[in-house]
Amino acid sequence: MKRAAKRWITALALGLLFGLGLGISGMTQPDKVLAFLDLTGAWDPSLALVMVAAIGAFAVVFRIARRRPAPLLGGRFPRLPKRPDGRLLGGAALFGLGWGLAGICPGPALVDLGAGLGDVAVFSAAMVGGILLHRLVGAGVSGQAPPDRVAPAPEAVPGVIRQGVR
C-alpha cells in the first residue's frame, strides 16, 4: 500500500478510536461534563480519571516515540513552542468560558454531531463559525501562525527537532 493511503487510513481509524474513547469515557455527555465542572454541586469526579488515564497513556507512548528519529509513517516530529504567552492564556480563558457554558469541547462536539442532529449540531456549526471568525480577524491577536500550519524547515535535523518537542 502506498504511504499516502496508509496515512489517511490510519488517521481515519485513529479518529474513530479516539471518538469511541470519548463516548465510552462519558466526555460526549454535556450534562456529565457540567457535573464534573460543578465542584460545589453534585460533583461527578469520574471525568478526572479520564484525564489522568488519557494523559498517562499518552505520556508512556510519547516517551518511546521521542527516541525515534522520525514518525513511523514518514514526515518529521514537530517543533512545538515552549513559552506560555498572553495569546495562549487569553484563548484558553475564552475556551474555558464556552466549555463551562455548554459542557461541550471540540472532540465531543464532532462525535455528537456524527451521532445525529440536535442542539449539539447547532453548537458544532457555531464552533466552526468561531474558527472561521478567528481566520478572518485572528491576525490581530495571532503573533505567529500555528505550528501545524507551517511546513517543517528542510534543514531541520532530528536532534534539533527532538529538543523542540521537549
Binding site: P30, R87, G91, G98, G103, P106, A109, G116, F123
Partner: peptide, 29 residues
Amino acid sequence: TVPVGGAGTPLPLLVLAGVIVGFGTRMGN
C-alpha cells in the same frame, strides 16, 4: 453515550458558547 440535546442549555447560549469555543481554541492553539 451520545445525547445530542446539549444538556438543556438554551439555544442562544449554545450558539454563543460554540463561537467562543471555536475562536478561543484557535487563539490559544
